[in-house]
Design a protein around this nucleic acid. Sequence first.
DNA 1: CAGAATAGCCAAAGCGCTTTGGAAGTCTCT
DNA 2: AGAGACTTCCAAAGCGCTTTGGCTATTCTG
Lengths: 340, 340
Amino acid sequence: MNLKQLSHMLSLSQTTVSRALNGYPEVSEETRRRVMDAAKRHGYRPNPSARRLATGKSGMIGYVLPTGAAVDIDPHFVEFLSGLGDYARSHELDLVLSPADADDEETTYRRIVANRQVDAVYLSSPRPADKRLALVNTLGIPFIVHGRSEGFDFDYPYLDIDNEGAFHEAARLLVQLGHKRLALINGNDRETFAIHRERGMRRALAASGLALGERHIRSATMTEENGYRAARRLLEDSEPPTAIVCSSLIMALGVVRAVRDLGLTIPGDLSLVAHDDVFPWLRPENFPVPLSTTRSSIRLAGARVAERLAARISGLEEGARGEVWPVDLVVRGSVAGAPG
Amino acid sequence: MNLKQLSHMLSLSQTTVSRALNGYPEVSEETRRRVMDAAKRHGYRPNPSARRLATGKSGMIGYVLPTGAAVDIDPHFVEFLSGLGDYARSHELDLVLSPADADDEETTYRRIVANRQVDAVYLSSPRPADKRLALVNTLGIPFIVHGRSEGFDFDYPYLDIDNEGAFHEAARLLVQLGHKRLALINGNDRETFAIHRERGMRRALAASGLALGERHIRSATMTEENGYRAARRLLEDSEPPTAIVCSSLIMALGVVRAVRDLGLTIPGDLSLVAHDDVFPWLRPENFPVPLSTTRSSIRLAGARVAERLAARISGLEEGARGEVWPVDLVVRGSVAGAPG
DNA sequence: CAGAATAGCCAAAGCGCTTTGGAAGTCTCT
DNA sequence: AGAGACTTCCAAAGCGCTTTGGCTATTCTG
């Protein structure tokens, strides 16, 4: 069933039927109802390919997926996707993942924009002065950044959590508990979120006249192994920290293992706080010692990004609106007063 | 730059230019070269929307993503995706994720094939007599199943690992080590992979005159917490197992925690083997006691599925070829002879 | 060397939708 | 009653590609 058949069936022109279906005003209410009815009854669905060709709109949102033998997709991605899907489903929005060589995402961005494959894109894990962001901005396709960049002379729409505030609060709590030597096990420090977290922590320490020594910061991709290594390094130092703030639950697993291997205990010898993106399959309350966390559901963020993307596509949202979500600090058994 | 302009520029018809570009034989080699050159020089890229409308082919592969507030996307998905992306990238194949209500995926499948949004789809986590599989089979769109179903009177193309063989081997090893009371902590037992694993284990036990008691099988979605609960249940039983085979690394985390909580040790009191899909962020050799595993890279599977999907789209692969990958058994410190 | 086959090219007809630029019909106002 | 302003609909021109059905030369057959 296509437009031609449907309109013939109704003894109307394709124009009128098309307009009736798409809610244009220049068609009488009665006609519109008649058309709508017939369309529903015959299960008419406009052919998206044809519509695309005519309008240039695809009804899809895009994401450029960096790939390569050495590139691992972050498991956070899947949770974000859950949220995105939740929203997209109810709006018949599809998501197209365009895999790109991690060393050359630009070509792919240019391609999907030139081809008008998607109506909007989102970017994630931005870095300061991220090239992708500048590119997408000049290409003129609607977009939203999940996270933030820095160092641009233009504004852009984003959704981010208050990483700085979260780690500020976490550190402040630890300081209040009497800790003087804090350490940070961060994610990849070329990404903005990691920079913000470090900044938050430094600010909290500075407020009490303390500092975060260079040897007390470790940064690496967020795997269990890297958490372990970082913790070993820190704890075997001559001046080991009495509290660690950690950028991810997965790394925290490694930290816990290191603490055990060294015969130490949480929170007796070490207080631990980690950031929790809320995975269904790994929960901080189920750590050997329930883990204190800064918590923010990445899934909710996914849904919100989808919602805003949809709004931008339909012109309901404009401008460079930034949105920053507060982060909960959830205190559990893994923190205690500083030892000794 | 579109076809019209390009052909005008070459003083050729659109027909000829189109054919030259698409490798049709009825154009002379010299002309083809001339056309190819000009196309490259001017960066001509055929408009995919137009091509789609004309041919019905989209150059994308599809995946229907079950979503919903109560639905969690498996973290394995992201690893599979890495592999898929690896292959797809080099072939300019995009992947479109169509989120669907987990209770009604059928509508979405029908939509994407009716709309010809994708040239092929893949299914994952199939169950016995999986409706999606029957549906996709009758809809006539090229597809590949990642995993296997059972109980159909037709064959279908799939890629699966030898789950039965893997768990057979794992159990056999444990039996050889003298274990008599084995337990299985499985994934969702409505999925075929879980059924196969159970079958493999039963077969190994039966071969030695042993059996897998109902109380020694637990099945749940693969989270740390479920692993913990299952292990507690098993180990606090009046006849606790001396060895556990576990369907995932994430669940194994929970098992390890339970063992600790109960004051037991691995492998002294309990031998443990788990299946490892090879996550970059959680490695069995880094468990408190290095974990023995049945190992199969889900990422490689993703790449292979993409490759076969591409082959099916271009008609290079036909028929219902099933492909089953063997699984490595990797023995590490978490297994030992049965206690006392 | 006539007739058949083949190679190489082209005009035009789709693919199924949206949108432009009217054209008729109906009302309103002076 | 005629001019202007709406309202409601339509024919036809795209969107940019592929593909069908020829139409010329050129080459091959017997």
